[in-house]
Simulated assay, not measured.
Amino acid sequence: MISLNKILCSLLALLTVMCLALAKPTAPAVEQAVSPVPLLKPVNANTDDDANANANAADAAAPAEHHYLVTQAPALSQLPELPNGCEAVAATMLLNWAGLPVTKEEVADALPKGEMPTENDDGAFVGGNPEDVFVGNPYEAGYGIYHKPVYVTMNRLLPGRLQDITGTSFDNLLSVIAAGKPAMIWATENMDTPYLDLEWQDDQDRLVEWYQPEHALLLTGWDDDYAYMNDPMTGQQEAYTLSDVKNVWELMGSQAITVN
Rank of each mutant, 00 (worst) to 15 (best):
L158W: 04
D132Y: 11
L174R: 14
Y195P: 01
P130S: 04
P213N: 12
P28K: 13
E65S: 12
E189N: 06
V259I: 14
A75R: 04
L196C: 05
L20F: 05
A88M: 00
I185M: 09
N260A: 08
T92R: 03
G160D: 06
Q236K: 12
T166R: 03
G136F: 03
V37P: 13
A108E: 09
A21P: 00
D192R: 13
V259F: 10
P194I: 13
V34Q: 11
V248A: 01
V133A: 07
Y240Q: 03
N52C: 07
L69M: 13
A90I: 01
Q78I: 00
Y151V: 09
L82Q: 01
I2S: 06
D171R: 06
A29F: 12
A27H: 12
N230W: 04
A227I: 04
T153G: 14
D164E: 11
A91M: 12
Y151R: 14
Y228F: 12
V107L: 05
A21T: 10
L174Q: 13
S169T: 15
Q255L: 03
Q78Y: 00
S35P: 05
T71R: 14
N56K: 13
D203Q: 10
N155W: 08
Q204K: 15
D244W: 02
Q255G: 06
P83N: 09
L69S: 10
I2Y: 10
T47I: 06
E119D: 07
N84A: 11
N260K: 15
D224P: 03
P74E: 04
V37C: 14
N190A: 10
A45I: 04
T118C: 07
C19L: 13
H215D: 00
D224S: 09
D164I: 02
I145K: 00
I145S: 01
P101K: 03
A108G: 05
S77Y: 00
G99L: 02
A124K: 12
A60E: 10
A21G: 13
L251V: 04
T166M: 04
T153I: 04
S243D: 07
L217V: 13
A62R: 10
N190H: 08
H147N: 07
G235S: 08
W249F: 00
S35Q: 13
L242H: 02
N96M: 03
Y146F: 14
N54E: 14
V208M: 11
P138A: 03
E87T: 04
D225I: 03
T92F: 02
A256M: 05
I2N: 09
L8I: 14
L196I: 07
M1Y: 08
M154I: 11
E65R: 11
L95E: 01
A58E: 10
Q255R: 03
I7K: 14
R156E: 15
G235D: 09
L95I: 05
F170M: 06
D121P: 01
V34E: 12
D223R: 08
A27V: 06
L219P: 02
P159M: 08
V37Q: 15
G114I: 10
F134H: 04
E119N: 11
D244C: 00
A227T: 07
A29C: 10
N230C: 06
